[in-house]
Amino acid sequence: MSTQSTRLAARLMVAPSVFVLFIWMIVPLAMTLYFSFRFYRLLTPERSGWVGFNHYLWFLNSPDFWLAIFNTLALVGGVLVITVILGVLIALLIDQPVKGQGMLRILVISPFFVMPPVAASIWENLFMHPQNGLFSAITRGFGMQPILFLEDYPLWSVIGIVSWEWLPFATLIFLTALQSLSSEQLEAAEMDGASPFNRFRYIILPHLTRAITVVILIQTIFLLGIFGEIFTTTQGGPGSASTTLPYMIFKQAIVAKDIGRAAAGGIIAVILANIVAYFLMRGIGRHLDN
């Protein structure tokens, strides 16, 4: 519903964004693709020659690789499940006519403002540390041995930390969505004899579909690349128990100084991201229409 000249103007105005994003995507991608077929190790003087698909094969044959894929997906999935479920529950709770809603919102949103390395170090040192952490003080208070979070449950610990960082985001979006639900709808359902659970199931939850979609989409985008929290806390260990694909690539690039191999891992990560994106769009993209 517009004229040709406005459509032309529209193209011109969207062009800079498309152009810079395209460059931002294609240059590193092309270089990564190139490196992934090259012999390029910083620790050896000779850094040239083609190696074909060897780097890719190394990844596919590495026992750690499939574990890393699993860990990546488990991290994304775990955080999504926790933040969406807890987020909805907390939003429902705060949406009640409770005293001091403004202050409650400030408290709940706070973790969102904490930068990941700080968040990770708070949890690692002040809470999960087996000697000095608050959790160990609690378990000792009950006369039990402290739980070795980062040694015995490394992936769960990381999922917990990341969930804490993202819970505010999910909660706030759900809260805003809840507040836009007309109370008349709920009252009508109540008149129709719907129990509180049924009101949640048939009125509130469908109303939240869009918000849940948005939360899943945005969080997935950020979570696929999670790196800092693992680097600060478990360093991917013990062994490879909490090594995700990004962390595995990091180990190849920075620890082993094998740029070629890391590049192959990067390409695999990009492919994985695209597969996830594809299923994401197919699964929930339709909720975003209009």
Binding site: V14, M31, I259
Partner: peptide, 28 residues
């Protein structure tokens, strides 16, 4: 204000550029 058939796809493509793990393109 001037949406076309591809607007949604364009938006999704833009978002997908964020899905590329930073570590993967660190060296380049």
């Amino acid at each position: 204000f001037v949406p076309g058939k591809r607007t949604k796809d364009l938006l999704m493509w833009m978002l997908s550029t964020k899905m590329m793990p930073a570590v993967a393109v660190l060296i380049p």
